[in-house]
Design a protein around this nucleic acid. Sequence first.
DNA 1: CCGAACATGAAGTTCTGA
DNA 2: TCAGAACTTCATGTTCGG
Length: 585
Amino acid sequence: MDGDASGVEGDNCDWNSEDEREIDDFSLSSSSSLTPPNEETVTGSGEASSSAGSSNSKLFDKFIGMGFTEKMVAKAIQENGEDNTDSILNTLLTYSTLETSPQEQQHIDSDNYSLDCDGSFMDGFSDVDSWSDNEEITNTVFDEDNKLSSLMSMGYTRDEASIAMERCGLNASLVELTDFICAAQISKVEDAHLPVEEKPRPKLPCIVSAKLKKRKQYDYEIWKRKKQALLDDDETIRLPNPMIGFGVPNESHPTIHRTLPEAAIGPPYFYYENVALAPKGVWTTISRFLYDVEPEFVDSKYFCASARKRGYVHNLPIQNRFPLLPLPPHTIHEALPLTRKWWPSWDERTKLNCLQTCIGSAKLTERIRKALEDYDSEPPLRVQKYVLDECRKWNLVWVGRNKVAPLEPDEVEMLLGFPRNHTRGGGISRTDRYKSLGNSFQVDTVAYHLSVLKDMFPGGINLLSLFSGIGGAEVALHRLGIPLKNVVSVEISEVNRNIVRSWWEQTNQKGNLIDLADVQQLNGDRLEQLMNSFGGFDLVVGGSPCNNLAGSNRHHRDGLEGKESALFYDYFRILDLVKNWSNVS
DNA sequence: CCGAACATGAAGTTCTGA
DNA sequence: TCAGAACTTCATGTTCGG
């Protein structure tokens, strides 16, 4: 039954490298990558499949990813135990050597194939059943023509798109197709990098051979290094150091020019934000979807007293930016002058770490107080290190003798550039305030990037704000003095919607605020109706959920395919609709 | 039922010294 | 150049009290 599939798959080496399989494994392991609007039920299965994270299954996946069959891996782990990775690998290499039939060996020879094309490779596709199971529940937003044109609009050739659609099947989601094409491109580059003498495979005897085993291990090492090099060069976007993006205020640097890809040029302008330290490959995918615009990585510590490492993908001009005034405090002491009195000399922090959604517990601050109270002067280095580690981890500040405490919500508001009491009142709990603030923009940073719009839209702008949260973008534009004409704000949390609505009324906005709860309800019809009523959007802002990308998430750091973070694809979907509307009108 | 408190690492990057 | 230490991180699940 899978014989046909294997036969077909085996024909074209370019499309079947380890890289591809690994990327496929990644995209297939979570079922719904492009979740269709109004069909939430799909996510359930993805959640179940993505939550498997035991060391056992990771080890298992690792060897599957190398191209060994499930059966072989299970047997090898059983024989060697989970702990001894080397022994498992050794056993697997022996198995695969034993299982490679003479015909297959011949196949290897004639195809100039590396590791991938032996028996284990063929078996690797024998669990195609689970693949199709996933496919069945993966609904897609795009029909065939739309997929083709979407892929082409992302810069892929018609051939690449067609082949990917043929290979992945008609039900494949857009992200699977792009992953497929990307993998093929990587493997082509990899082939091109192969030294000539390595490409032809030596004639192999059809017996169990230590040489073959050694060779295979050697090939694997070579492959691993090459892949890493390729990932470093082509796949992984390097974070800049210092993380100042295309420039920050008061930083002397040469004027940077950038040329946007044709497809990225507005209208509308768009501005997308997420955590900079996302799992590998996430920013590559985000950038690829957002018209190949290079992300701008900025740490907000260059704007205020706390760090916030974020990536921004936008098509805004980058010349003549200006900061919000007054400039916010740049050090902890400036921001929190009352702490200076209690700050010990051995705590050399001048900036806070990233403001998160949770705060340190009272018990922790009590433990720290107890650890310090035994010493009249400076505590020993061991205690200093313990205290400093915890202070950095939980952003604790000194509020008394031997006494540290987490930041108060209004202090977080101030550090993030929001008006005092922005999140206060209206039935919101203290915990929810921290949560909403921890998930929001740093206003000064975002405002600096958006400042170029002020001269371009003196009469005000129409804003589409997706995943608005507590309205960071709205606040930034308002503080820049850019009038808000029509704002469509989409935010799932009711308390956050209330905060934005309340801010809107308190700041006497003249424009029109439309708030929606669910981004997936914003379909083509609704969007077109909105855009027809006031003439389209000038700016589409959004920071999609980072839950599955953030390092703090122990449980479900599933990458861009995670339950919440996959909403990025809704940002792309909606942005694309807005762009198309603008281009037609 | 809700809110508060608490415990729970790993993945990735950057730094550092040989 | 590179291995290993050091550092950072828009969080989630469970429990408990009101």
